[in-house]
Design a protein around this nucleic acid. Structure first.
Lengths: 73, 73
DNA sequence: AGGCGATGTCAAGTATTTTTTACCCCAACT
DNA sequence: AGTTGGGGTAAAAAATACTTGACATCGCCT
């Protein structure tokens, strides 16, 4: 399936682990639309670095815990 | 002073701490041009999340150690 | 003096990408 | 039946990351 980005994420899992946080709530907390969250959870693209920081902050985890990169040592 | 990104970085410092690594060497290690490294060190814009991962990997540090976000708790 | 390596600037341009806008589906209500 | 809330798709729009190339400076070496 047309997956293009080598960066995956665990947004959806963390959202639920962080107490039933809805897509809209996360979107608001990050200052983006709900569609952005949907697209990110679907892995359609990787967010900007700034948004990555905001997401990690909203989910109260480090960036590396939300986003994984296919290219570790 | 036209700084537009709220994300700063410590690429230049880490480059030297990691043993006199040149801009070109870092660029090669990350698969980008030297101009990109220059622009990043000058703080002209924030890299993509994927490039941020590659840079952190090349400098052997965590992303948060290279890039700082003006918005921590 | 001349050359080389590392750094930097400026500018234009591409082309990729992120992000938004608009519309649809389904379940659980009242 | 109608509405509210959670989730989803697909398009285009808006933003910007990245490249290319040309040129200037500084320090070091022969």
């Amino acid at each position: 399936m047309g997956n293009g980005t080598p960066v995956t994420n665990a947004i959806r899992r963390l959202r639920f682990e962080r107490g039933e946080m809805t897509q809209q709530a996360l979107a608001d907390a990050c200052g983006v639309t709900r569609q952005t969250v949907i697209a990110l959870e679907a892995g359609r693209y990787a967010p900007s670095l700034e948004l990555a920081f905001r997401i990690a902050h909203a989910l109260e985890v480090r960036i590396e815990e939300v986003f994984q990169w296919a290219g570790e040592s």
